[in-house]
Design a protein around this nucleic acid. Structure first.
Lengths: 254, 254
DNA sequence: ACGGTCGTTGCAGATAGCGCAACGCACCAG
DNA sequence: CTGGTGCGTTGCGCTATCTGCAACGACCGT
């Protein structure tokens, strides 16, 4: 791998923590200031870092544009979105769409009806992989060896008393999820939040994405939320059909 | 500037257009395949590029995470957001927050009340710089020389009959905006959409951001929208006060 | 079975990046 | 006013690092 590029890219997560000046960047990279300067200049030239008035560097605007374009190229989001909206309109709860990528699970879409909450709040942020219902579905579909390897190298933070405690428990849960074709997270991430999730499959039958409905205890009990399962599964299946090309996109008029 | 890094970063916008295979990347970079491979591998190692099932490359997940973190470091967004929400609740229209950076104006926040529209729709995407009300405010605050230089090198696309047609007209408009301390876009970008905008200033009095309220003709006429101007300016001033540290963040209880 | 395409690897040569040291500048204290 | 310190910046010589080549292997369609 390319040393220079490697160093340059290491600057990005570093700046993500907050603005930094040349010296700090050079130190944390373990290179001479002049080297750091050249790297920063190159990043700057591509708009990935921005030099603010006090001469310190921070992440730049092009990053948004790139992330945005990357989003738009995820055709599954395109297809799924109207379905998610419809489900949200019918049940009123938060609806998420997530994919697995490179040992991470991340939300790529979200519909939230009630509040004009910060919209981008969670989109793009890695999901609590050991407990989230969508994560279980996505990981359950990996091959045996991949699943095992991944389960071993994960951390199992105890968000709540009901969080998945270790690799063994996680693998058991994945087997169960794989078996039944849907998943839940009942207070495993936030004590008062429950989710039901269903898989979205591509033409090859593999799980391409997962969607979930989440609601806090105070609005509906876990049991009540579970009654939505058939609806969630139907929505997921509809998306699967469209995504895999089985269902024509246009509805046939009566 | 660093050639290697330069080449590597050039891959990102290229992939933003859509997935590409090794050969395509190498061709468009004008380098040998083996070189492109090494660069892609390095990008991949940092999660900026993802290799999909068909071996083609596309932009990766880390990009979202980075863009997201970059967002969160924009403290002006943090401060402004509740004000934007409040304004939105009171008038019901779409509210935008934008900043100027590196010859571009981009939205960094947006509150839209009516529909559960695709939330990230426009955030992060460059704004139509020659016509948008927020863009006029942000550019009007640049120094004379900067303004002139920028105005010259811009394109002036005629989105509608009322779009700013050329550099001279644009500079006149900027002078006017600078003078009056607020700006409008009356059908200059989309025939049926009008905006009113006001500047947000930092401690040094310079314009740090701009906010606007937008609404389509069919909902309110341009004249009606203009009656909101005082409210928009008050909101912007409130944000300015808080951002520049003049106003204590906590309200003093009566 | 065979040619074509595509991704991958090892290598030798030379380019391009590296760290050093010195400079300019702003700020501060005496 | 002057000497000192802490920045970012520059030019340069050395060599580590990247490059392009050529050959390999996998896959696919004919």
């Amino acid at each position: 791998m390319s040393q220079t590029v490697d160093r340059a890219l290491s600057i990005l997560p570093l700046l993500a923590e907050g603005p930094a000046d040349l010296g700090q960047v050079a130190d944390r990279l373990g290179v001479h200031k002049s080297t750091a300067l050249r790297l920063l200049r190159t990043l700057h030239g591509h708009g990935l870092v921005y030099r603010q008035a006090d001469q310190r560097y921070r992440l730049g605007a092009r990053l948004f544009a790139l992330a945005q374009e990357a989003m738009e190229n995820l055709d599954i989001r395109e297809i799924a979105h109207p379905h998610l909206v419809r489900l949200n309109e019918s049940c009123g709860h938060t609806v998420h769409l997530a994919v697995y990528e490179e040992h991470e699970v991340l939300y790529i879409d979200k519909v939230e009806s009630r509040y004009p909450v910060r919209m981008y709040s969670r989109i793009g942020k890695p999901v609590a992989i050991t407990v989230a219902a969508v994560a279980k579905l996505l990981l359950a579909d990996l091959s045996d060896t991949e699943r095992r390897a991944l389960a071993e190298q994960l951390d199992y933070p105890l968000y709540t008393a009901r969080s998945t405690p270790n690799a063994a428990a996680f693998l058991r849960e994945l087997d169960k999820v794989r078996e039944q074709g849907w998943a839940t997270d009942l207070g495993g991430h936030e004590e008062s939040i429950n989710c039901v999730a269903a898989p979205i499959r591509g033409a090859d039958g593999r799980v391409a994405a997962a969607m979930s409905v989440s609601a806090p205890n105070v609005v509906v009990t876990a049991d009540e939320l579970l009654t939505l399962l058939p609806q969630v599964r139907r929505t997921a299946d509809a998306i699967s059909g469209e995504y895999s090309g089985r269902t024509p996109v246009k509805e046939t008029p009566a």
